[in-house]
């Protein structure tokens, strides 16, 4: 009944022509056809936010949308946040502050936060909480997540703000997420999204 369709999807700036059953969700196609497993599957019913990606810059739950309806649109996943092997400010802030514990919610939260920071470089704490209110995290208690987003926002604005280095994980250089020392820490060179 549902035929296989062939579609060209633009994911993280790269065109991919993939064939998949027409009733498959964007989540299924990203993970199974595009092998982009950074996008997680949690509830698959819209309740947890683990599968959040950006479509034309706005957050979308990939578990509740059909892949075939996304031709010609700009899809962004967590894999697109890094520039080559250099992680983006949000990623570094999450890693260094311990805002990711088991990490399952992290890709979805990063994408929801990314969408907000592009529109609003200086979000209030309440705005951050509101933006992330569709994303559940069972580990962190959310405080570190909010702090990491605030820190990444400051870095993106070019401010030299940040938590005291002694509270950071790893081997803190002066705390600058996405700073100018590529390869200084494993978390900044390896993609931790699989």
């Amino acid at each position: 009944m549902s035929r296989a369709v062939t579609a060209t999807l633009r994911v993280n700036g790269e065109e991919r022509t993939v064939a998949f059953p027409g009733h498959h969700t964007l989540l299924e196609v990203l993970r199974e056809e595009c092998a982009l497993t950074g996008t997680k599957h949690g509830c698959e019913l819209g309740e947890c936010g683990a599968c959040t990606v950006l479509v034309d810059g706005r957050p979308v739950l990939s578990c509740l949308t059909l892949a075939c309806q996304h031709e010609g649109r700009e899809i962004e996943t967590v894999e697109g946040l890094a520039d080559g092997n250099r992680l983006g400010p949000l990623q570094v802030a999450f890693a260094d502050l311990g805002a990711a514990q088991c990490g399952y919610c992290t890709p979805g939260i990063l994408m929801a936060a990314e969408a907000m920071l592009r529109e609003q470089p200086r979000p209030s704490r309440e705005r951050i909480a509101e933006q992330l209110s569709g994303n559940l995290c069972r580990c962190t208690g959310y405080l570190k997540i909010v702090e990491a987003v605030e820190w990444a926002a400051a870095v993106r604005r070019g401010e030299d703000a940040g938590p005291p280095p002694e509270i950071l994980f790893g081997h803190p250089e002066p705390g600058r997420p996405g700073g100018d020392a590529p390869g200084r820490r494993p978390s900044e060179t390896a993609s931790s999204n699989t």
Binding site: M1, S2, P21, G22, H23, H24, T25, L27, E28, H41, E44, L45, C63, L66, C68
Partner: peptide, 9 residues
């Protein structure tokens, strides 16, 4: 995965 049943769109 919790998948949709097949249908025609």
């Amino acid at each position: 995965m919790l998948r949709l049943p097949p249908f025609r769109l």
